[in-house]
Amino acid sequence: MQPDDQAPAALQTAFGAALLDPDLPVPDGVIGPHGKGAKRRFAVYRNNVTVSLINALADIFPAVQRLVGEEFFRDMARIYLTQEPPRSALIFEYGGGFAAFLERFEPVAKLAYLPDVARLERAWLDAFHAADAEPLSPATLGTIPPERLGDVSFTPHPATRVVSSRFAAVSIFSANREKRPLDDIRPLDSQDGLITRPHYDVQIRTLPPGAAGFFNHLIGGATLGAAAAQTLEQNPDFDLPSAISAMLDAGVFAACSTDATSPE
């Protein structure tokens, strides 16, 4: 029984805390009807919350689940969700901290590529829900006089994400999403992944050396000239024409401009 002077606002605080911690007792004031117990009844809410959030994480991170196995994944997700319950009612945005959690979670320390696979899966879903925008067409870029190309800057497409990995995370992600075996993948090869959604289907591809840095410079607002110069300085073998071609093909950007203040 609650003391009479107990602040009423404490009810949902206690209820919420007990939902996420099965070691806590049924909150004060929560009862069964006609003098019945409330333990199993309250456990229905605990189960609803836990199972629905585990299911949400399994939907968002299917490749991670396939890599560690369903039972292990669900136990791991249960630990994660008590540490980081969702902050908003948009469940498709959940799990932003899951990759960092996997980095700290000792039982998966051997699977060093796992956090980057989770990053790719989170980026994939961000791209899926990103705003619609027409990708920049080669014709639009073609209207810029050759002598001004170095001054061009770009507006990123809302779906574009670059995920760089010290492991073959893109190949591992793709093989798991397509339910293919991992036999031919060398996990210690580093890979950069580019995620785009030129129209409605999310695309993922691995980038050649230097391209991730090049795109990141452009996404950060650098002009084509500056981005190319910086990239070539770090990576003399960088293939600029094929990077520009891949950029148009993948729909990395939505618009370009030679006026640095307002790309159109």
């Binding site: 009810l11 949902q12 605080t13 209820f15 919420g16 939902l19 629905s52 969702p86 902050r87 009612a89």
Partner: peptide, 21 residues
């Protein structure tokens, strides 16, 4: 129902007491 609190979003429809408050 309620589903959000300072602690986070619980993704379930949780009950309220039926009183004036």
């Amino acid at each position: 129902a309620w589903s959000s609190h300072d602690a986070g979003y619980f993704n379930d429809l949780l009950p309220v007491p039926y009183n004036a408050e």
